Computed example of a mutant assay.
Amino acid sequence: MPDLLVVAGLSLTAAALVMTLTTVWATRAGRVSVVDVAWGAALTLVALVCAVLGGTWQCWLLFVLVAAWAGRLSSHIGIRSRGHGEDPRYRELMGGELSEVGVAHAVRKVFFVQGAAVWLVSLPLQAAAVSGLEWTWAVWAGVALWVVGVTFESVGDAQLAAYKRDPDRGPVMDRGLWGWTRHPNYFGDACVWWGLWLAGGLASGWLAALVTVLSPVAMTVWLVWITGARLLEKTMMQRPGYPEYAARTSMFVPLPPRRRAAA
Rank of each mutant, 00 (worst) to 15 (best):
G176Q: 09
V118C: 15
D166Q: 09
L177Y: 03
V150N: 08
L120P: 08
A162L: 13
D157V: 06
L133S: 09
A141F: 04
V172N: 01
V139D: 08
A128P: 05
G156A: 03
V139T: 08
R182P: 02
W180D: 01
G176S: 09
W119S: 14
T136S: 13
N185P: 02
H183A: 14
P124I: 07
L133V: 12
V118I: 15
F152G: 08
M173L: 13
G142A: 12
A128L: 06
V121E: 01
G179D: 01
P184M: 02
Y163D: 03
L133Y: 08
P167T: 03
Q159K: 02
Q159Y: 00
K164S: 08
T151I: 10
P124A: 11
G132T: 04
R182A: 09
W180Y: 15
W178A: 07
L120R: 05
L133C: 09
V155T: 12
G156D: 02
G179R: 03
G132Q: 06
W178G: 10
G176I: 08
W135I: 01
D168Q: 14
A138L: 15
R169G: 06
P184W: 00
L125T: 04
V121Y: 03
L160A: 13
V143Q: 09
D168C: 04
D157S: 07
A158I: 02
L125E: 11
L160P: 01
V139L: 05
A161Y: 03
W140D: 10
V118W: 03
V118K: 11
H183I: 03
G170R: 08
F152P: 09
W180Q: 02
G149S: 05
Y163L: 05
P171E: 12
